[in-house]
Protein backbone atom coordinates (compact mmCIF):
# COMPACT_ATOMS: atom_id res chain seq x y z
CA UNK A 1 0.00 0.00 0.00
CA UNK A 2 1.15 3.52 -0.70
CA UNK A 3 0.73 5.99 2.15
CA UNK A 4 -0.74 9.38 1.28
CA UNK A 5 1.80 12.16 1.75
CA UNK A 6 0.06 13.62 4.80
CA UNK A 7 0.31 10.26 6.63
CA UNK A 8 3.94 9.51 5.92
CA UNK A 9 5.45 11.62 8.69
CA UNK A 10 3.07 10.35 11.36
CA UNK A 11 3.58 6.74 10.22
CA UNK A 12 7.37 7.01 10.43
CA UNK A 13 7.31 8.77 13.79
CA UNK A 14 4.83 6.25 15.22
CA UNK A 15 6.99 3.31 14.13
CA UNK A 16 10.06 4.99 15.63
CA UNK A 17 8.24 5.58 18.89
CA UNK A 18 7.06 1.97 18.97
CA UNK A 19 10.60 0.70 18.38
CA UNK A 20 11.90 2.99 21.05
CA UNK A 21 9.28 1.69 23.48
CA UNK A 22 10.19 -1.94 22.79
CA UNK A 23 13.95 -1.24 22.94
CA UNK A 24 14.87 -4.54 21.25
CA UNK A 25 18.17 -6.05 22.38
CA UNK A 26 21.11 -7.39 20.33
CA UNK A 27 19.12 -10.41 19.17
CA UNK A 28 17.28 -7.95 16.89
CA UNK A 29 18.57 -5.64 14.21
CA UNK A 30 20.28 -2.54 15.60
CA UNK A 31 17.84 -0.16 17.27
CA UNK A 32 19.91 2.90 16.40
CA UNK A 33 20.10 1.86 12.73
CA UNK A 34 16.34 1.28 12.70
CA UNK A 35 15.65 4.70 14.19
CA UNK A 36 18.14 6.48 11.91
CA UNK A 37 16.79 4.74 8.84
CA UNK A 38 13.19 5.62 9.68
CA UNK A 39 14.19 9.20 10.42
CA UNK A 40 15.62 9.43 6.89
CA UNK A 41 12.21 8.41 5.51
CA UNK A 42 10.48 11.21 7.41
CA UNK A 43 9.35 13.97 5.00
CA UNK A 44 10.42 16.43 7.72
CA UNK A 45 13.99 15.45 6.74
CA UNK A 46 13.99 14.69 3.02
CA UNK A 47 10.70 16.21 1.86
CA UNK A 48 9.33 14.16 -1.01
CA UNK A 49 12.72 12.86 -2.18
CA UNK A 50 12.21 9.30 -0.95
CA UNK A 51 8.55 8.97 -1.88
CA UNK A 52 6.47 6.99 -2.72
CA UNK A 53 6.05 5.72 0.83
CA UNK A 54 5.17 2.09 0.35
CA UNK A 55 4.36 -0.27 3.20
CA UNK A 56 3.58 -3.95 3.17
CA UNK A 57 -0.19 -4.67 3.11
CA UNK A 58 0.29 -7.61 5.47
CA UNK A 59 2.98 -6.53 7.90
CA UNK A 60 2.62 -2.74 7.80
CA UNK A 61 6.41 -2.40 7.62
CA UNK A 62 8.19 -0.14 5.09
CA UNK A 63 8.88 -1.99 1.85
CA UNK A 64 12.37 -2.92 0.77
CA UNK A 65 12.32 -0.45 -2.13
CA UNK A 66 11.36 2.49 0.13
CA UNK A 67 14.13 1.64 2.60
CA UNK A 68 16.55 1.04 -0.26
CA UNK A 69 16.02 4.57 -1.57
CA UNK A 70 17.47 5.94 1.67
CA UNK A 71 20.42 3.55 1.38
CA UNK A 72 21.06 4.66 -2.19
CA UNK A 73 20.97 8.32 -1.16
CA UNK A 74 23.43 7.47 1.62
CA UNK A 75 25.89 6.19 -0.99
CA UNK A 76 25.63 9.52 -2.83
CA UNK A 77 25.77 11.53 0.42
CA UNK A 78 29.01 9.77 1.39
CA UNK A 79 30.68 11.06 -1.79
CA UNK A 80 30.35 14.65 -0.56
CA UNK A 81 30.84 16.63 2.63
CA UNK A 82 28.73 19.11 4.57
CA UNK A 83 31.11 21.86 3.47
CA UNK A 84 30.70 21.00 -0.20
CA UNK A 85 26.89 21.01 0.00
CA UNK A 86 25.05 23.95 -1.59
CA UNK A 87 25.27 27.05 0.63
CA UNK A 88 22.23 28.95 1.92
CA UNK A 89 22.88 31.64 -0.68
CA UNK A 90 22.96 29.06 -3.49
CA UNK A 91 19.73 27.53 -2.25
CA UNK A 92 18.08 30.94 -2.07
CA UNK A 93 19.21 31.66 -5.61
CA UNK A 94 17.81 28.33 -6.81
CA UNK A 95 14.53 29.00 -4.95
CA UNK A 96 14.25 32.38 -6.62
CA UNK A 97 14.62 30.72 -10.03
CA UNK A 98 12.29 27.81 -9.26
CA UNK A 99 10.77 27.44 -5.77
CA UNK A 100 10.09 23.71 -6.18
CA UNK A 101 13.65 23.00 -7.33
CA UNK A 102 15.02 25.12 -4.47
CA UNK A 103 12.94 23.18 -1.97
CA UNK A 104 14.12 19.86 -3.41
CA UNK A 105 17.75 20.98 -3.22
CA UNK A 106 17.29 22.08 0.41
CA UNK A 107 15.61 18.75 1.25
CA UNK A 108 18.47 16.88 -0.41
CA UNK A 109 21.03 18.82 1.63
CA UNK A 110 19.16 18.07 4.89
CA UNK A 111 18.80 14.41 3.96
CA UNK A 112 22.48 14.06 3.00
CA UNK A 113 23.60 15.68 6.25
CA UNK A 114 21.48 13.21 8.22
CA UNK A 115 22.65 10.25 6.16
CA UNK A 116 26.34 11.12 6.57
CA UNK A 117 25.98 10.55 10.31
CA UNK A 118 23.34 7.84 10.21
CA UNK A 119 23.65 4.11 10.61
CA UNK A 120 21.23 2.38 8.24
CA UNK A 121 19.68 -1.05 8.11
CA UNK A 122 21.30 -3.31 5.53
CA UNK A 123 19.33 -5.30 2.95
CA UNK A 124 21.48 -8.27 4.00
CA UNK A 125 24.64 -8.20 6.08
CA UNK A 126 26.74 -10.80 7.83
CA UNK A 127 29.18 -9.62 10.46
CA UNK A 128 31.17 -11.41 13.11
CA UNK A 129 33.88 -11.24 15.69
CA UNK A 130 36.20 -13.55 17.60
CA UNK A 131 35.08 -13.84 21.22
CA UNK A 132 37.77 -16.10 22.62
CA UNK A 133 40.63 -18.37 21.51
CA UNK A 134 41.57 -21.31 23.73
CA UNK A 135 44.22 -24.00 24.02
CA UNK A 136 44.66 -25.99 20.83
CA UNK A 137 43.18 -23.13 18.85
CA UNK A 138 39.51 -23.65 19.64
CA UNK A 139 37.76 -20.40 18.87
CA UNK A 140 34.50 -18.96 20.02
CA UNK A 141 32.94 -16.80 17.32
CA UNK A 142 29.90 -14.54 17.26
CA UNK A 143 28.01 -14.01 14.00
CA UNK A 144 25.07 -11.74 13.23
CA UNK A 145 23.15 -11.89 9.98
CA UNK A 146 20.71 -9.01 9.35
CA UNK A 147 18.11 -8.92 6.65
CA UNK A 148 15.12 -6.96 5.45
CA UNK A 149 12.84 -9.96 5.09
CA UNK A 150 10.67 -10.33 2.00
CA UNK A 151 7.49 -9.70 4.00
CA UNK A 152 8.88 -6.36 5.21
CA UNK A 153 9.90 -7.42 8.72
CA UNK A 154 13.48 -7.00 9.88
CA UNK A 155 15.31 -10.04 11.09
CA UNK A 156 18.59 -10.82 12.79
CA UNK A 157 20.00 -14.34 13.10
CA UNK A 158 22.65 -14.42 15.82
CA UNK A 159 25.00 -17.32 16.29
CA UNK A 160 27.60 -18.09 18.94
CA UNK A 161 29.72 -21.02 17.86
CA UNK A 162 32.86 -22.81 18.94
CA UNK A 163 35.26 -24.44 16.52
CA UNK A 164 37.20 -27.50 17.75
CA UNK A 165 40.49 -26.06 16.42
CA UNK A 166 41.60 -22.94 14.54
CA UNK A 167 38.76 -21.94 12.23
CA UNK A 168 39.09 -22.98 8.58
CA UNK A 169 36.90 -22.84 5.50
CA UNK A 170 34.13 -20.26 5.49
CA UNK A 171 35.42 -18.76 8.76
CA UNK A 172 39.11 -18.13 9.34
CA UNK A 173 41.42 -15.71 11.07
CA UNK A 174 43.77 -13.31 9.32
CA UNK A 175 47.36 -12.57 10.38
CA UNK A 176 46.11 -10.07 12.98
CA UNK A 177 43.70 -12.60 14.46
CA UNK A 178 40.63 -10.91 12.99
CA UNK A 179 37.73 -12.94 11.70
CA UNK A 180 37.42 -13.30 7.92
CA UNK A 181 34.02 -14.48 6.68
CA UNK A 182 33.67 -16.10 3.27
CA UNK A 183 30.92 -14.67 1.08
CA UNK A 184 29.56 -18.23 0.71
CA UNK A 185 28.43 -18.19 4.35
CA UNK A 186 26.34 -15.11 3.68
CA UNK A 187 24.72 -16.92 0.77
CA UNK A 188 23.91 -19.78 3.12
CA UNK A 189 22.22 -17.43 5.60
CA UNK A 190 20.29 -15.72 2.81
CA UNK A 191 18.98 -19.07 1.65
CA UNK A 192 18.12 -20.37 5.10
CA UNK A 193 17.40 -17.36 7.32
CA UNK A 194 13.73 -18.27 7.65
CA UNK A 195 13.97 -22.05 7.90
CA UNK A 196 12.98 -23.58 11.25
CA UNK A 197 15.62 -22.85 13.87
CA UNK A 198 16.69 -26.46 14.46
CA UNK A 199 17.09 -27.08 10.71
CA UNK A 200 19.14 -23.88 10.42
CA UNK A 201 21.28 -25.06 13.35
CA UNK A 202 21.96 -28.36 11.52
CA UNK A 203 22.90 -26.51 8.34
CA UNK A 204 25.39 -24.39 10.23
CA UNK A 205 26.94 -27.36 12.02
CA UNK A 206 27.29 -29.23 8.69
CA UNK A 207 28.68 -26.22 6.85
CA UNK A 208 31.08 -24.97 9.52
CA UNK A 209 31.95 -28.12 11.47
CA UNK A 210 31.49 -26.16 14.69
CA UNK A 211 29.46 -26.46 17.85
CA UNK A 212 26.55 -24.00 17.92
CA UNK A 213 26.22 -22.65 21.46
CA UNK A 214 23.59 -20.03 20.79
CA UNK A 215 21.30 -19.54 17.86
CA UNK A 216 18.64 -16.85 17.92
CA UNK A 217 16.37 -15.21 15.42
CA UNK A 218 14.80 -11.89 16.30
CA UNK A 219 12.02 -10.39 14.22
CA UNK A 220 11.02 -6.73 14.27
CA UNK A 221 7.46 -6.35 12.98
CA UNK A 222 4.72 -6.65 11.93
CA UNK A 223 3.41 -3.18 12.62
CA UNK A 224 -0.37 -3.19 12.62
CA UNK A 225 -2.39 -0.03 12.12
CA UNK A 226 -5.73 0.76 10.45
CA UNK A 227 -5.37 -0.23 6.80
CA UNK A 228 -3.09 -3.25 7.30
CA UNK A 229 -4.64 -6.63 6.48
CA UNK A 230 -4.64 -8.65 9.70
CA UNK A 231 -4.31 -12.43 9.58
CA UNK A 232 -7.75 -14.11 9.79
CA UNK A 233 -7.16 -15.49 13.29
CA UNK A 234 -6.50 -12.05 14.79
CA UNK A 235 -9.36 -10.01 16.34
CA UNK A 236 -10.05 -6.82 14.40
CA UNK A 237 -9.63 -4.81 17.63
CA UNK A 238 -5.89 -5.41 17.38
CA UNK A 239 -5.74 -3.48 14.12
CA UNK A 240 -7.51 -0.40 15.42
CA UNK A 241 -4.48 1.28 16.93
CA UNK A 242 -0.74 1.07 16.42
CA UNK A 243 0.77 -2.26 17.42
CA UNK A 244 4.39 -3.27 16.81
CA UNK A 245 5.59 -6.82 17.39
CA UNK A 246 9.10 -7.91 18.35
CA UNK A 247 9.59 -11.64 18.60
CA UNK A 248 12.53 -13.82 19.42
CA UNK A 249 13.38 -17.51 19.05
CA UNK A 250 16.45 -18.90 20.82
CA UNK A 251 18.05 -22.32 21.07
CA UNK A 252 21.08 -22.06 23.29
CA UNK A 253 23.16 -23.66 25.99
CA UNK A 254 22.44 -20.78 28.35
CA UNK A 255 18.67 -21.37 28.18
CA UNK A 256 18.23 -23.76 31.08
CA UNK A 257 14.44 -24.01 31.05
CA UNK A 258 12.58 -24.00 27.76
CA UNK A 259 9.74 -21.47 27.56
CA UNK A 260 7.17 -20.50 24.97
CA UNK A 261 5.75 -16.98 25.43
CA UNK A 262 4.58 -16.28 21.92
CA UNK A 263 0.80 -16.00 21.59
CA UNK A 264 1.03 -15.84 17.83
CA UNK A 265 3.00 -18.97 16.99
CA UNK A 266 2.08 -22.31 18.49
CA UNK A 267 4.93 -24.18 20.25
CA UNK A 268 6.85 -26.09 17.56
CA UNK A 269 7.08 -29.84 17.58
CA UNK A 270 10.83 -30.10 18.09
CA UNK A 271 13.41 -31.99 20.08
CA UNK A 272 15.90 -29.51 21.46
CA UNK A 273 19.48 -30.84 21.56
CA UNK A 274 20.68 -32.12 24.89
CA UNK A 275 22.27 -29.45 27.04
CA UNK A 276 20.35 -26.65 25.31
CA UNK A 277 16.97 -25.04 25.86
CA UNK A 278 14.58 -23.09 23.68
CA UNK A 279 12.97 -19.76 24.37
CA UNK A 280 10.33 -18.00 22.32
CA UNK A 281 8.72 -14.72 23.17
CA UNK A 282 6.72 -12.01 21.49
CA UNK A 283 6.50 -8.50 22.91
CA UNK A 284 4.25 -5.67 21.79
CA UNK A 285 4.25 -1.89 21.76
CA UNK A 286 0.70 -0.55 21.66
CA UNK A 287 -0.45 3.00 21.02
CA UNK A 288 -2.83 3.13 23.99
CA UNK A 289 -3.89 1.26 27.08
CA UNK A 290 -7.16 0.02 25.54
CA UNK A 291 -5.28 -1.66 22.70
CA UNK A 292 -2.75 -3.02 25.19
CA UNK A 293 -5.61 -4.56 27.14
CA UNK A 294 -7.06 -6.13 23.97
CA UNK A 295 -3.65 -7.66 23.22
CA UNK A 296 -3.37 -9.03 26.75
CA UNK A 297 -6.87 -10.56 26.49
CA UNK A 298 -6.12 -12.14 23.11
CA UNK A 299 -2.80 -13.52 24.37
CA UNK A 300 -4.43 -14.89 27.51
CA UNK A 301 -7.02 -16.66 25.34
CA UNK A 302 -4.07 -18.42 23.68
CA UNK A 303 -2.53 -19.36 26.98
CA UNK A 304 0.27 -16.80 27.02
CA UNK A 305 0.79 -13.77 29.21
CA UNK A 306 1.81 -11.04 26.78
CA UNK A 307 4.39 -8.36 27.40
CA UNK A 308 2.81 -5.12 26.20
CA UNK A 309 4.35 -1.65 26.45
CA UNK A 310 2.46 1.50 25.60
CA UNK A 311 4.36 3.85 23.38
CA UNK A 312 4.87 7.56 23.82
CA UNK A 313 4.80 9.67 20.65
CA UNK A 314 7.63 11.82 21.89
CA UNK A 315 11.24 12.18 20.87
CA UNK A 316 12.77 8.66 20.93
CA UNK A 317 15.66 8.07 23.27
CA UNK A 318 18.92 6.57 22.00
CA UNK A 319 20.38 3.46 23.57
Amino acid sequence: MELPLERVGSYVRALRAALDALAPNEDHVSLSASLDHLHALDPAVGGSLLLPAEVSDHTGMPTYQWLERARSEAVLAARGTDDADPSDAELERASALDPELGRRMRDRRTLYRHLRLAELLPATRLGGAVRRVGPGGWTQIALAYDRMAPDGRWVRVRVELKTPGPPTGALRLDAQGRLVIDEALKHLFTRHFSTPLLALRSQLIDALGAEVLHLSRGWTGPFWFPGVELPPSVPTALGQGLLLHASIEIIATDVHTSKHLDPWEPPPDEIVPEGQGSFRERRFAASDERLAEAVRDWSASRGVRAQVTTLQLTRPRRL
Binding site: R71, T124, G169, A184, Q203
Partner: peptide, 20 residues
Protein backbone atom coordinates in the same frame (compact mmCIF):
# COMPACT_ATOMS: atom_id res chain seq x y z
CA UNK B 1 25.68 -26.11 1.33
CA UNK B 2 28.38 -23.46 1.28
CA UNK B 3 29.19 -24.00 -2.38
CA UNK B 4 25.70 -22.94 -3.45
CA UNK B 5 25.00 -19.31 -4.17
CA UNK B 6 21.88 -17.44 -3.25
CA UNK B 7 20.08 -15.89 -6.20
CA UNK B 8 18.30 -13.48 -3.86
CA UNK B 9 21.66 -12.19 -2.61
CA UNK B 10 22.83 -11.49 -6.16
CA UNK B 11 19.59 -9.80 -7.09
CA UNK B 12 19.57 -7.60 -3.99
CA UNK B 13 23.13 -6.44 -4.73
CA UNK B 14 22.18 -5.71 -8.31
CA UNK B 15 19.06 -3.84 -7.27
CA UNK B 16 21.16 -1.75 -4.87
CA UNK B 17 23.47 -0.72 -7.69
CA UNK B 18 20.63 0.16 -10.04
CA UNK B 19 18.88 2.08 -7.28
CA UNK B 20 22.01 4.18 -6.57
Amino acid sequence: ALARRSIAEGLLRQYEQVSV
